[in-house]
Amino acid sequence: MMDAAEDKSAPAAVDTGRAPEGQEPAPETAPRAGRVTNLVCGAVTSLAGVGALAVAMDLGTGSLSQPGAGTWPAIVSLMLFVIGLFIAARAAHFTDAEPITKDAVGVAVGAIALTVAVQLMPLVGFELPSVALLVFWMSVLGREKLRLSVPLSVLVVAAVHLTFVHGLAVPVPRLF
C-alpha cells in the first residue's frame, strides 16, 4: 500500500494541491470502471435479494390478517432482486463506478488493522491496541514520521482514557 509517492510527510497538503502527484489526475480523465463492474454490482445486489428472499420464505409469509415474520422481508428482498437486475441490465450506462486502484490495498490493510485492534481491546484493554493502531495508521498508512506519531498516539490515547474512563465513567475495557 505504500508503494507510491513516499514523499508524503509534508504537512497539510491540500487536495487541490496534490493533483500533480501521480494518481490524482487519473480519476478525472481516465475511464471509470465500466460495464463489467456495474454488471457485478447488479449481480451482487440481485444475489443479496435472492438470499434474503430464501430466508424470508423460510420464515413464512403469513396472511393478510396475520402477516408472518417473512412477509415484509420477502417484499423488500424482491425489490432488491429486481433493482439488481435493472442495474445489471443497464450496466453499460453507468459512469459512476470507480475502479479499485492498487491503493485500495491500503484500505484493506487499514480495515484489517482496525479489526485486529478492536478484537484485542476486550482482551488486553483498549489502550495498547489503540496506541498501536494509531501509530500504524499514522506512520504506515499516512507516512508520518515515527517521532511524531508515537508520542502523539500515546498522548491521544491518554486523552481518550481521561475523557471516557474518568470524565464520563464509561466502562470501556481497559488496562489502566
Binding site: P122, L123, V124, G125, V165, H166, G167, L168, A169, P171, V172, P173, R174, L175, F176
Partner: peptide
C-alpha cells in the same frame, strides 16, 4: 465520577506472564 474498578476481562489475556501487570492495573 471516576470508576476505578477493574476492567472487564484484561486479566484473562494477560494471565500468562502478565498477571502482575493486571493486578497493578486493576
Amino acid at each position: 465520577m471516576s470508576r476505578p474498578s477493574c476492567s472487564r476481562r484484561p486479566l484473562i489475556a494477560v494471565a500468562a506472564g502478565g498477571l502482575s501487570v493486571g493486578l497493578v492495573a486493576c
